[in-house]
């Protein structure tokens, strides 16, 4: 994970809390948060080689599918759950979001904005977007529920979720005048800290 992206997420994480990272990859975010915020982290990762990398870093991990995994998680209790670029890979993102907020007080969601101008351009030219943060062609991508910044915020509204913080980032994971002005057109990523109202 890009280091400036990690720094952004880190800002919203208090010291010594219990963090669940859904789709934690090789565990580098949790390792970073363990070092910088002394969090008690736990990751979920479907890919065995990435999960094994978590073991090497001594990051507790459950190797399973997020959709399947969180069904068994109903009695767990976390302070913050993180879904860094994984919500669009889930079978039922809306249900998952609600389930996650049953077991975690807050949730950080980051997502690629499918309405970014580069996606719009590709679609205008009649092609499925292949961009900097959506680099995989349509036939190989794990992204089955892509959405736009507008869509996600609408979903939060419909689910009665409170967006505590949000950031609109460009391809370099930075906020700019343009991303602030017209996020759904210029932001490549939306980053949200949400909770139940």
């Amino acid at each position: 994970m890009k280091s400036n992206f990690k720094r952004i997420i880190e800002k919203w994480i208090p010291q010594n809390i219990k963090v669940l990272d859904l789709g934690c990859g090789d565990g580098d975010l949790l390792e970073h948060l363990k070092d910088s915020k002394n969090v008690n982290g736990f990751g979920i990762e479907i890919d065995i080689s990435k999960a094994n990398e978590c073991l090497r870093r001594n990051i507790p991990v459950m190797q399973c599918d997020i959709d399947e995994g969180i069904k068994d998680f109903d009695d767990l209790d976390f302070d913050i759950a993180i879904m860094a670029n994984s919500i669009q890979c889930l079978k039922n993102p809306n249900l998952a979001l609600q389930n996650i907020l049953n077991i975690s007080n807050k949730c950080i969601v980051t997502l690629p904005n499918f309405a970014h101008w580069s996606c719009r351009l590709d679609l205008f030219l009649g092609k499925m977007p292949v961009t900097k943060n959506l680099p995989v062609p349509w036939y190989e991508t794990k992204n089955i529920h892509l959405c736009t910044i507008k869509d996600f915020e609408e979903l939060c509204n419909n689910l009665d979720l409170h967006v505590i913080e949000k950031l609109y980032l460009n391809n370099n994971f930075k906020e700019s005048t343009l991303t602030k002005l017209l996020p759904n057109l210029f932001a490549a990523e939306g980053v949200y800290l949400i909770e139940r109202k």
Partner: peptide, 12 residues
């Protein structure tokens, strides 16, 4: 995990 232990699970 519920008991706050450090535990990993691998399924093959």
């Amino acid at each position: 995990i519920k008991a706050n232990k450090k535990c990993s699970y691998i399924e093959l």
